[in-house]
Simulated scan of single mutants.
Amino acid sequence: MSAEAAGEFPAAAPLPAAEGTAHTAAREPGGRPPEITRGTARPEGGGRAAGGAAPAPARQWPILLVLAGALIGLVVTATGQFRAGTIIVGASLLVGAGLRWALTAVGMLAVRSRFTDVITYGILGAAILLLALMAQPDPVIRIPFLEDIIHFSVR
């Protein structure tokens, strides 16, 4: 019977100490070495959107564009124009989806994979835009089955 089959495992080798740290071979309960993250990979397209010579805000222009649009939409909403403000917020998220899909380097607009970011920004933007167009009073569009769901759930 081998040691593995008997439930006995050899002790793991200690992790090498990083330069300039006082790392010891302390182990967590159960004999596992402590988990140390050495680095994290950037998401695809997460590099600078402009060259390194450009000032910091210019390097992150895609996320700044989307955030500026959302901020403008929130200000418009706060001034009493609910429908117009939420349409601007939804449209800025759709712009973010388009930028993420079309550009290879979008800086901090890249959060996960390109596919995940485009789907997330697109669904959220479309949902906000759709709800803004359906808002009462005087909705711009009517979707009867959604009205039926709301009436059924409110009863």
Rank of each mutant, 00 (worst) to 15 (best):
V95W: 08
P10F: 13
A53F: 15
G80S: 08
F145S: 14
V95C: 08
P137Q: 11
L99I: 12
L133W: 09
A17W: 15
G20C: 14
V154F: 07
A132T: 04
G98N: 01
G39Q: 06
A56K: 10
P10C: 14
D148G: 14
G20S: 09
A97I: 02
A25D: 08
W61D: 01
A22R: 12
A127C: 10
M134S: 04
A26D: 09
A25Y: 10
G96W: 00
G73E: 01
G85A: 02
E147V: 09
M108R: 09
W101E: 13
R100Y: 03
G107N: 02
S2Q: 10
A54R: 08
G31A: 12
G47W: 12
T86F: 11
A58V: 11
I119T: 08
P144A: 06
A102F: 10
L130Y: 01
S92W: 04
V76K: 01
P10V: 15
V89R: 01
M134E: 05
F145C: 10
G69D: 03
G51W: 05
G7S: 14
P14N: 08
G122W: 01
G98F: 00
L130F: 14
A127L: 03
F152W: 12
A53N: 12
G46H: 02
A13P: 06
I128N: 00
G20Y: 14
E28N: 03
I72P: 00
P43S: 13
G39T: 07
L74F: 06
A12G: 03
L74W: 04
A41Y: 03
R112Q: 06
M1A: 14
M1F: 14
G107P: 01
T120W: 03
F115S: 13
A91C: 07
V76Q: 07
E4I: 11
G107K: 05
R27F: 12
A110M: 07
H23W: 09
I128V: 11
L64F: 09
P33S: 10
G98K: 00
A54H: 13
G7F: 07
A50R: 08
P10E: 11
V76Y: 01
G51I: 15
V118T: 12
V89Q: 03
A135K: 10
I128S: 00
G30L: 04
S153W: 15
L103M: 13
T86H: 08
G107T: 12
F115H: 11
L94A: 10
V66K: 00
I72W: 02
G69W: 01
M108T: 09
V140W: 10
G47I: 14
A97V: 04
L94H: 02
